[in-house]
């Protein structure tokens, strides 16, 4: 595997998984804020469904989207199959419940007095919501990073929706799968280590950048 090809695979991994984690967070964190701040009928059911969804195998999600995006599928006309967009969409669906679950727990752990205090000091309900998010910023960051880690390390969706096309949709995990299938186990292990190094680098960068003055890392 030549260096340029390898660099492109790393870039595709970072791009699709990073985007998937960001899009999923934009949907999941407000949903978690809503769930954490209210008690209503059906909330437990939503949480159970979310918990179950977390366990969905990547191949099943890949298959589901494959049937939607394939030429004969209802969304076949969009021409997304075997593109990075398809990989991202599938990964959003994969990591969404994980980020909802982690964010919900993080926001539930923020003292309920935080919102009350913000309100009594003159915050609007929207501002109070932001303040709760700010108070939970580190556990929320962990939720987003966990989503990213799940997306960058999965192979089923990337393989089924991306098709492992060289220089187009081949990422680190599908490269590992290919190298292993070819019997190039050494390359597979090197790529695996590379994946871990990339994930470690992202974690260190983000956590260092956002660490507060009096916060634990």
């Amino acid at each position: 595997m030549i260096a340029r090809e390898l660099a492109l695979a790393v870039w595709i991994s970072l791009k699709t998984s990073g985007l998937a984690a960001l899009v999923a967070s934009a949907l999941a964190v407000p949903a978690a804020l809503f769930l954490a701040g209210r008690d209503f009928r059906g909330k437990k059911l939503i949480l159970v469904v979310n918990q179950t969804w977390m366990a969905a195998p990547t191949v099943v999600i890949g298959l589901l989207f494959y049937s939607l995006l394939s030429r004969s599928g209802p969304l076949g006309g969009l021409g997304l199959l075997y593109t990075q967009t398809a990989m991202t969409v599938g990964q959003v669906f994969l990591v969404l419940p994980l980020i909802v679950g982690f964010s919900y727990t993080a926001l539930r752990q923020v003292d309920r007095r935080a919102r009350l205090t913000a309100l009594t000091l003159g915050a609007s309900r929207r501002q109070a919501g932001w303040i709760v998010l700010r108070e939970a910023r580190f556990p929320l960051l962990v939720a987003v990073l966990a989503g990213f880690a799940r997306a960058i390390s999965e192979v089923g969706i990337a393989m089924m929706l991306g098709g492992n096309i060289r220089n187009a949709t081949r990422n680190i995990t599908t490269s590992i799968a290919l190298e292993t299938a070819k019997g190039e186990f050494r390359n597979g292990v090197i790529l695996g280590v590379l994946l871990l190094v990339v994930t470690l680098g992202i974690n260190v960068l983000v956590q260092t950048g956002l660490r507060g003055r009096d916060e634990e890392p």
């Binding site: 003292d111 007095r113 935080a114 205090t117 309100l119 003159g122 303040i131």
Partner: peptide
């Protein structure tokens, strides 16, 4: 919300924001 700008409650176990 407007009235809350003029009436401030200090709770029994006050909460301090991180920082």
């Amino acid at each position: 919300a407007a009235a809350r700008l003029g009436a401030v409650l200090l709770t029994h176990h006050p909460y301090l924001f991180k920082g």
